[in-house]
Design a binder for these strands. Structure first.
Length: 128
DNA sequence: TTGTTGACCTCTT
DNA sequence: CAAGAGGCCAACA
């Protein structure tokens, strides 16, 4: 039988439980975002308890394209409310279009009234 | 296998 | 006030 390349000394939760990965948590939260609302990578990371891993949230979005169902990554923007990841969408204007359908105003690739539309999972979902 | 990059955020100088 | 570096986890070469 083949032995897993897992070292007892160094545990690598890489493929240990993909269903319990940090990414899935992000997808769950992003999918919980109500329509017409937006959130930030840091907010999600903070909700997960690892605000320092805000980069992972963005990276998770990269895999969101293969995530099922599709993750509304267009509702996730950076701390400044800027569509930093718009360039990573199918089209550079797709994100803006999707947000426009959500009745969200976007100017200069930045969400207007971002503070009002801001949806904090840590508060809405309530932290235990 | 290791090393580097990545849709970020926060602190320090 | 502004700019730079650090740090996290995971995937790709």
């Amino acid at each position: 039988m083949k032995k897993p390349g897992l070292k007892k000394s160094t545990e690598k939760p890489r493929s240990l439980n993909k269903e319990y990965s940090f990414f899935d948590n992000v997808y769950e939260v992003v999918r919980q975002i109500p329509k017409g609302r937006v959130t930030s990578y840091g907010a999600i990371a903070n909700y997960l308890g690892t605000k320092l891993s805000a980069r992972m949230v963005g990276w998770a979005m990269n895999a969101a394209h293969s995530a099922k169902p599709k993750v509304p990554a267009h509702r996730v923007v950076n701390r400044n409310g800027m569509l930093s990841g718009k360039a990573h969408f199918a089209t550079p204007t797709l994100m803006e279009e999707l947000l426009a359908k959500e009745k969200i105003k976007v100017e200069e690739d930045t969400i207007s009234d971002f503070e009002k539309l801001f949806w904090d999972p840590a508060k809405e979902l309530e932290i235990k």
